[in-house]
Design a binder for these strands. Structure first.
Length: 170
DNA sequence: CTTCTAACCTAATCAGATC
DNA sequence: GATCTGATTAGGTTAGAAG
């Protein structure tokens, strides 16, 4: 199977700014997706190890790939096979202690949309992986809306419609 | 410039832990 | 069983790299 590689061959940790994580460039790697578009944590971790990237990046890739393929299937009125086989195991539930929650809550009150640098720092302070911090913030925003911090900028409405094309032609 | 898509988001839902 | 909360999903948006 073809392995994805970043454009420059390194993981640019130092280059992470205050905003998003710097994006990397995957080469095509569809084989494992076609086998199972809904990999469990074990499969994702094995894959991550094989390609030398963190598991959360693999998860994001699968999310985007499903999104893309689902859209394509709908456009062509093809049925989406959905999950096949038995459901694979989820990521082990992270236990967040009281002090960790307090720390996260303080950060949440200050900024509901922390950038990658802030999340990395929280990850260091709490010992919780950055990907779990991101999930925590997502859940927190969903369950405690209200005090408006920074809304994720909505540009100006509808001008940026879905691209509607995937990287792979049928 | 435009196009492509990784990174990010919300909303809904699933599921493990605790009471 | 109800409640809380972490994990996953569908599907949409934003922004950085490549053409």
């Amino acid at each position: 199977m073809a392995l994805p590689t970043p454009s420059d061959g390194t993981i640019p940790v130092e280059a992470w700014g205050r905003g998003r994580r710097r994006r990397l460039v995957w080469t095509q790697s569809q084989t494992c997706f076609e086998r199972n578009p809904y990999p469990g944590i074990t499969t994702r971790e094995r894959l991550a190890q094989a390609i030398g990237f963190p598991e959360p990046w693999v998860q994001i890739w699968f999310q985007n790939e499903r999104s893309c393929q689902l859209r394509q299937h709908r456009q062509e009125s093809l049925p989406w096979p959905g999950r096949r086989g038995p459901q694979e195991g989820r990521q082990m539930r992270t236990t967040v202690t009281g002090s960790q929650t307090a720390l996260l809550l303080r950060a949440f009150e200050k900024d509901r949309f922390p950038g990658i640098a802030a999340k990395e720092e929280l990850a260091r302070e709490t010992g919780i992986p950055e990907s779990r911090i991101q999930i925590w913030f997502q859940n927190q925003r969903a369950r405690h809306p209200g005090q408006a911090g920074r809304e994720p900028v909505q540009a100006d409405g509808l001008c940026n419609a879905a691209p509607g094309r995937c990287h792979s032609a049928p």
